[in-house]
Nucleic acid binder design. Structure first.
Length: 301
DNA sequence: TTCCAGGCAGTAG
DNA sequence: CTACTGCATGGA
């Protein structure tokens, strides 16, 4: 792998790379990206099949995107794809001023625009990766969840070597679809979760579930309904995936313990709030529910 | 030992 | 819709 090119992106208003990086570097040592000396880097498979490493860092008032790879011939034609990926990753094309306006008017949340200025919804572009992460994270604490994810990624993902670091691509649907449930038990998956992951991977490998198919559905509710029909995907996972992988703005992760904690400490709601109580709290933020969930999570660590 | 952690499926009401 | 159970792991 060698350096192929460097791109420069203007930082939009109300954007803070440091806030985004802080969230990604909360101390769980995620195995799918590397945070190093103020930069974040991760491997990416381009549409043409080439594997590259994108490394994003701050350079003055801009973002610098360095690209590592093998094939310098074709990389120029992928420039826009790489820019789009980074913009989507950090939700850079969204004007969040209206959200800040609503926060500023709120009795309990008016501190957020200043304290978390420029914090953005961090995306997980890969649908399978997002779904795997959700299933793994169901009902276990985050540090254990990260460990299980690392087991999965280092066992069934693809290592990508560079001079000073070994990255990993998350496992493909084809690889996971070929596993049997017992294969995942040593990686600390429960029986149910093994079945969920393999079932989801098989749907994707068979072409019965894909980003394209979900995006083709007319409404947010249709996409949620389609996800909920799949074994292992409940309300929490459906909302989380639509938020993180599709950048849907109206997702509330009902039942989420982190959300419940934040609502308890900030608004005194709960400890186990009913759907209606949550909806009432979210009512002033129509169209920004996902951002509110994300900002509430931000208050936790 | 008990409780619980960024839940889900199944059943009952 | 809520309320319940059973399912699994591992840390506090």
């Amino acid at each position: 792998m060698r350096h192929l090119l460097t791109l420069t992106l203007a930082q939009p208003p109300l954007f803070s790379f440091k806030e985004c990086l802080w969230f990604l570097d909360r101390g769980y040592d995620d195995c799918l990206y590397r945070i190093h000396e103020g930069s974040i880097s991760k491997p990416l498979v381009l549409a043409n099949g080439e594997v590259i490493i994108v490394q994003v860092s701050e350079l003055g008032s801009s973002l610098k995107v360095a690209v590592l790879g093998q094939d310098s011939e074709r990389i120029e034609s992928s420039t826009q794809e790489i820019i789009d990926y980074v913009k989507e990753w950090f939700d850079m094309d969204r004007d969040i001023a209206p959200f800040y306006q609503l926060l500023g008017q709120h009795r309990l949340l008016h501190f957020m625009p200043e304290r978390y200025a420029g914090f953005r919804l961090i995306g997980i572009r890969s649908l399978l990766e997002a779904l795997c992460w959700c299933v793994i994270g169901q009902q276990i604490n985050l540090s254990f969840a990260h460990r299980v994810k690392r087991n999965l990624v280092t066992t069934y993902g693809t290592p990508i070597e560079t001079d000073d670091y070994t990255y990993h691509l998350s496992p493909s649907a084809e690889v996971l679809a070929g596993l049997s449930r017992e294969d995942l038990w040593p990686l600390k998956f429960s029986r149910q979760k093994s079945d969920y992951i393999i079932g989801i991977a098989r749907l994707m490998a068979e072409g019965k579930l894909s980003r394209k198919q979900l995006e083709a559905l007319p409404t947010f509710e249709d996409r949620k309904k389609a996800l909920l029909e799949i074994k292992g995907i409940g309300a929490w996972t459906a909302n989380y995936v639509l938020m993180k992988s599709f950048a849907e703005m109206r997702c509330i992760t009902y039942g989420d313990t982190g959300l419940n904690q934040a609502l308890k400490s900030i608004a005194g709601i709960g400890p186990k709030p009913k759907k209606e109580e949550i909806d009432t709290f979210f009512a002033p933020f129509v169209g920004w529910e996902s951002y509110l969930v994300f900002y509430l999570w931000r208050t936790l660590s």
